[in-house]
Structure formats: structure tokens, C-alpha cells
């Protein structure tokens, strides 16, 4: 199959209803070959539902989903040949050992790369001999991650994959994503952990209440955000109040704090220069702020 001529994942006005509840309300998603795509949203936004549709496990109510230019509902087996999946809530067979589950899942996909399998078990510091009944949430997550990464795939669908992992294991996970991405694979990473997405992803789609509210590269999205300033000055810089693009100006005891729109940074800096500033910190626009702005309504903007 040629890659590059079509998106690895494409959904058009994807809608999924469960009874009267709408999980997806017209989602447009576009994941290009070779990119690590962040799929950000709060709990219940429809991330897992989207991944299940992409796997052909459930059928969209309306709209279209295509993976490798195939309809996953009609061709689940062909799609799955090139997909590795880590579900959000990993449930394993209580009586099987972790090792057996890894062998089962990779075996059904055509067999693990033995060297990779060994390295992964080692890196994730995982004890594969124990029965799955006795694994903690983090260890169950490791089983699914090792099974996913132990055999190369063209597309990795990862549903909140680092939930339950400690920071050290999280670093191992990020290395693996970078490795497969370096090998040319496409990754769709659903998450509500922003730092993870900021570190790993080329592009991001933010989903809320079943549809995409924002999509683009991190740079493009940052453009939409505000920089947070904290200054100390000889006198309270009252003239900032009059400037357009300045929000939430207040004195928090340790200094004056405000947010400024990217477009107005020039005039803000000029004003600050005139105000006799003695100290300044400017925090880069965090995805956090962007995220919160999309999750909260217009009335309670941050």
C-alpha cells in the first residue's frame, strides 16, 4: 500500500449515538502518515469511542472513518494487520501469566520481534511470570504496551497509554513512541496529560463533547494562547489596564500578574519598558491554558 497519498486516519463528520446519548457529534480527524498525533480531551469527550470506531469494533452511526484508506468496519482484519492497540482500560485473562498474554497478542499479529520483546520487558522492569490476576493497574498497562511495541506496526493507536505508569516508566514509554515514530510509524495518542502530548506530538486535535474544537501543530495552537507575565515594578503599572489584549491584571502580593495575547505582545513590552520594571518573568504559552480554555465555557475563561 502506498503511503503519503492519503491520510493514515481520516474521519469525516463522524457521529456515534449510544441510545439517546451522543458520544461523537461530527468529528473530523486527520492524521498524516508518519506523524505523532495528539488526541486531547477530557473524560467522556469521545476519545475511546473514536479509537474503537477506527478499529472497526463499533460502527459509526453516520459519517465516515478511514484507516489506511480502508473502512475499518468492513475490513477489520486488513486494518488490524498493521495496527498495534493499547486500550484505555486494560483487562487481562486472570489465569494467564503476563508473558502468555504478550505471546498471545503478538502471536496473533504474526509474532513478536524476540529482541524487542526482551528489551521491552527489561526496560519496563516487568515481571512476566506472574498471573495477570495479581498485576496492578500499572503492570496491566505494561503488558498491553509491551505487546503493542514488541512487533513493528504502521499505526499505533494508544488510548491514554501512560495512565498508571510511574514517571520512570513514563519516560520509557515516551522513548518507545519516539523510536517507532523514528522508524516511520504513525501514532495516534489519546491523552489528557498535556506534558506528554507537548513532548511527543507533532500535531494535536482537541476534542470536546464529541467533536474536534481545534487542530493543528503545537506552534499553531500556541499562537492562539496568551503569555503569562509576572512583573515587579516601582509603582503599580496602571497603564496596562488600558491596553488591549491584556487580561486578568492583578497584584498577587509578590508582584503583578497578567496574561497577554500574542498579537499584542509588542505594545505590552513597550508599556512595560516605560513602567520602570525591576523584575520580569514571562511563561511560554502552555498547552494547559489552551486546554482549559477549550474545556471551560466562554463565561469562565482562564
Amino acid at each position: 500500500m502506498p503511503s503519503g497519498s492519503f491520510p493514515t486516519i481520516e474521519t469525516i463528520r463522524l457521529r456515534k449515538d449510544f441510545g439517546r446519548a451522543a458520544a461523537l457529534t461530527g468529528l473530523d480527524l486527520d492524521v498524516r502518515p508518519g506523524e505523532v498525533h495528539g488526541f486531547l480531551g477530557p473524560n467522556g469527550a469521545g476519545k475511546s469511542t473514536t479509537l474503537r470506531i477506527l478499529l472497526g469494533l463499533i460502527r459509526p452511526t453516520s459519517g465516515a472513518a478511514r484507516v489506511f484508506d480502508l473502512d475499518p468496519w468492513a475490513n477489520p482484519v486488513r486494518v488490524h494487520r498493521d495496527v498495534a492497540y493499547v486500550p484505555g482500560d486494560v483487562s487481562l485473562w486472570p489465569a494467564l501469566s503476563g508473558s502468555e498474554v504478550i505471546d498471545l497478542l503478538t502471536g496473533l499479529r504474526g509474532g513478536a520481534d524476540e529482541r524487542l520483546r526482551r528489551e521491552l520487558i527489561d526496560e519496563f522492569d516487568f515481571d512476566p511470570r506472574r498471573k495477570c490476576r495479581t498485576y496492578s493497574k500499572g503492570n496491566r498497562q505494561k503488558v498491553a504496551l509491551i505487546a503493542a511495541f514488541a512487533r513493528p506496526a504502521r499505526l499505533y493507536l494508544l488510548d491514554e497509554p501512560s495512565s498508571g505508569l510511574d514517571p520512570v516508566m513514563d519516560a520509557v514509554f515516551r522513548r518507545q513512541v519516539k523510536r517507532v515514530s523514528g522508524d516511520g510509524a504513525t501514532v495516534l495518542l489519546s491523552s489528557h496529560i498535556l506534558s506528554e502530548v507537548e513532548q511527543l506530538c507533532d500535531r494535536v486535535t482537541i476534542i470536546r463533547a464529541g467533536s474536534a474544537v481545534e487542530t493543528g501543530t503545537l506552534a499553531e495552537l500556541r499562537h492562539l494562547t496568551r503569555t503569562r507575565f509576572r512583573i515587579t515594578a516601582a509603582a503599580y503599572p496602571a497603564m496596562l489596564e488600558a491596553l488591549p489584549g491584556v487580561y486578568g491584571l492583578h497584584d498577587d502580593g509578590a508582584g503583578t500578574v497578567f496574561d497577554a495575547d500574542a498579537a499584542e505582545l509588542g505594545s505590552v513590552l513597550k508599556a512595560l519598558a516605560a513602567a520602570g520594571v525591576t523584575g520580569i518573568t514571562a511563561a511560554p504559552p502552555s498547552l494547559e491554558a489552551l486546554f482549559l480554555r477549550h474545556y471551560t465555557g466562554p463565561d469562565d475563561q482562564v
Binding site: 501469566s97 505471546d103 511470570r129 498471573k131
Partner: peptide, 22 residues
Amino acid sequence: EGEGKDRAGTGGTSLLGLAWRL
């Protein structure tokens, strides 16, 4: 709960094998 197997045995990588194990 005893220790599990180190590697899947014969049939441990097929759907029928899994059904049998369960």
C-alpha cells in the same frame, strides 16, 4: 496463586488455544 508460565506453550498464540486455556 502459583507462578505462571514463562512463555506461551503450543497453542498459546491461537484463538482456539486461548479458548481451551479459558
